[in-house]
Design a protein around this nucleic acid. Sequence first.
DNA 1: GGATAATTTGACCGATTGGTAAACATTACA
DNA 2: TGTAATGTTTACCAATCGGTCAAATTATCC
Lengths: 214, 214
Amino acid sequence: MAIPRAARTQRRTRIQEEKEEQILEAALDVFSVSGFRGSTIDQIAAAAGMSKPNLLYYFRTKEAMHRALIDRVLFTWLEPLRAFNAEGNPESEIRSYIRRKLEMARDFPRESRLFANEVLQGAPHIEDELKGPLKSLVDEKAEVIRVWAKAGKIAKCDPYHLIFSIWSTTQHYADFDVQVRAVLGQEHSGAGRFEDAARFLEQLFVGGLMVQPV
Amino acid sequence: MAIPRAARTQRRTRIQEEKEEQILEAALDVFSVSGFRGSTIDQIAAAAGMSKPNLLYYFRTKEAMHRALIDRVLFTWLEPLRAFNAEGNPESEIRSYIRRKLEMARDFPRESRLFANEVLQGAPHIEDELKGPLKSLVDEKAEVIRVWAKAGKIAKCDPYHLIFSIWSTTQHYADFDVQVRAVLGQEHSGAGRFEDAARFLEQLFVGGLMVQPV
DNA sequence: GGATAATTTGACCGATTGGTAAACATTACA
DNA sequence: TGTAATGTTTACCAATCGGTCAAATTATCC
């Protein structure tokens, strides 16, 4: 007789590790495209190459899968911002933050779209994370930027909107990838677009922030 | 005997005008939050205050409703970019483009989210619009920017990525509104955030583009 | 190798999905 | 005011939805 997964307290089996990994990978594929409401368990089961009841043996509900996925991805997603260093040189910190965020957009577009879908639809499942851990982290880093501005190391500016603008410009290349490629056309849709974007964005932010405004 | 709407060629009735308006308004509410797949006809019918079959009398399928909505919204959505004027002063043109886009994010967030949902999910219904009318318009305006840069009126930069960055930063305040408010906290989530954003973005883009880079 | 626990499957459930049929009600117009 | 066209509703459909169950299968451990 099988014991429902959530009731177990024992150590996880090898099979459990593998299958849960498999499922979350498939779930990322599906949720990142269609959002929570638009995704079905059948789709995820098909993508994971297993039957629906089998999938539900590991995650008892669609919500549970989504939550596990969010939890797993959120931490790494905030890594670049966490690496933002108060002691560093402002210009190079901002440059490398942009670069890191762009690399994540390039290498983990599904993760970006997972959050984009979620936030776009009102963040019904991650409201707490936004108001809690995310806000705290941003508050902390905004304070760093504020101090830099006060010390004249960068232009006076609203640190929150600065962070928003770095988020939006970089994640744009993951979330709106289809549009970016449609507009650039086939000839400029290769991998090079990320380097072009990096060059432009560093120019924009360094130029826009490293001089005192009039 | 009722004639299915799509088969009619006659002039539209007063009732048709009103009801179709009502339906598209409700559809915008629903589609902009849940995307195409995640929205149901029942939700839209409820939001429009009419029965499902009644709604289906005016739009025969969910797809037809979505398409009508996209068609209606796309034109006005591109208005700010269309207003971008080659003869104008570069600085003030960029400033007013940012301002207009921000005003649209503030006043028409549902329209922004409708497109965001669609593009995020791979743009299955508007691929042609992206590769056709949208690309053409962007190509045209990118050429204007390129000429400005060549003439030394603004810094040398990739015009496409400049446009992308204006899109992303401004639309961010509509598409990711929940996140923006969560991070800013209650005290800074009032209407003033759009003015703060405008101030920051104008500073960023003018500072980043009006001086020649090193 | 056998007992036991973990895993997988097919058959199924009630609810919801997009959409239809036809009867009924209302409106526009002569 | 009569009537034909337009508009609305109730009842319904097959397909799909999230999820359950019990039986069958496989892995683990002594």
